[in-house]
């Protein structure tokens, strides 16, 4: 097991480094300067600005410094458009918000999705099953950026039950709509995967054996069927996590939560390269780390995998 984790780390670390270097180089190709204004800047001022931000040094030196400070000190440097703030400040301000509703979205997607899928499979071809299939098929075409306006239209503008934006330090009523909007389509996918793999497992020989020896139904399902049925779900958690991280950008922007996605889009529109770079790397690192976690969890659960 340890050697398996080490081998996976051996892949993960270079991937992350490649991502950092690649993003940095991409930024170098960007035409124009982040300091350019419509009226132009005197040359002396520009030279000073470039010295201040270290842009007058050669490319390889800046890249080495950047990679070094990111890797060793988690320091993403200063923001180009907010002179008094560093990228770290921006991340420290926005990330807890995104993390809060992102965590709950993940929990909701997994718990509701697995429950729905498992119940649908156990009550195969019943009204409940058809309802669950209907919900999951419907939710498939409702990605976060479609769910968000629909939810606000219904629960904020028509019913007036919940606020349609803002955060207020994460009070419950401000968190509900973002969580629903972000989790719906993943919940649907998880439910679909659980249902089909549960159906397979319930028809398997070992489940029949368990039933035949007279175990009560709930024990058959919880002790024998659920674990193997969840394997495909576990391997879907990686893509789901990536999707949710990406989706959080829409949620942050649409609900004005003050989360990290809002900074990301504003930085993208203002060409604040260091902020874009920093957030890309942060999310890249999270993605790679989570995929590693999923792979290890999978190897741990699935007895058929030899590592």
């Amino acid at each position: 097991m340890t050697s398996y984790i080490l081998r996976r780390l051996l892949v993960a670390v270079p991937t992350l480094l490649a991502l950092i270097v690649l993003s940095f180089l991409l930024m170098e190709f960007a035409p124009g300067s982040p300091f350019a204004t419509e009226r132009g800047i005197p040359e002396a001022v520009m030279a000073n600005l470039e010295r201040e931000y270290g842009l007058d040094r050669p490319l390889w030196e800046r890249m080495a410094t950047y990679v070094w400070s990111v890797v060793t000190q988690f320091d993403f440097g200063p923001s180009f458009t907010f002179p008094d703030r560093s990228v770290n400040d921006i991340i420290a301000q926005g990330f807890p918000v995104t993390l809060t509703y992102g965590f709950w979205s993940f929990v909701v997607a997994v718990v509701v999705g697995v429950t729905l899928g498992a119940v649908a499979a156990i009550k195969h071809n019943s009204a409940l099953d058809y309802a669950a299939v209907g919900v999951t098929v419907g939710a498939q075409v409702l990605p976060n950026f479609v769910m968000a306006p629909i939810l606000v239209l219904i629960f904020t503008l028509w019913l007036g039950w919940l606020p349609g934006g803002g955060w207020r330090g994460g009070q419950v009523e401000y968190v509900i709509l973002p969580v629903i909007a972000l989790s719906t389509s993943y919940m649907a996918s998880i439910a679909r995967i659980t249902r089909s793999s549960m159906l397979d497992v319930l028809n398997a020989g070992f489940v029949r054996t368990a039933r035949a020896k007279g175990l009560p139904a709930h024990r058959v399902i919880l002790r024998h069927a659920l674990k193997p049925a969840l394997l495909p779900v576990v391997s879907y958690l990686g893509p789901a996590f990536v999707g949710m991280i990406t989706g959080s950008v829409v949620i942050d922007v649409f609900f004005s939560t003050g989360g990290i996605g809002q900074f990301f889009v504003n930085a993208a529109l203002a060409r604040d390269y260091s902020v874009i770079l920093g957030i890309t790397i942060l999310f890249g690192a999270l993605t790679i780390f989570f995929n590693l976690l999923v792979d290890v969890a999978y190897a741990w659960i699935d007895p058929k995998i030899r590592y």
Binding site: L26, I279, G284
Partner: peptide, 11 residues
């Protein structure tokens, strides 16, 4: 394993 949406936005 690269969060392509962010890289695409960068592009």
């Amino acid at each position: 394993s690269i969060p392509y949406m962010f890289v695409l936005i960068l592009l």
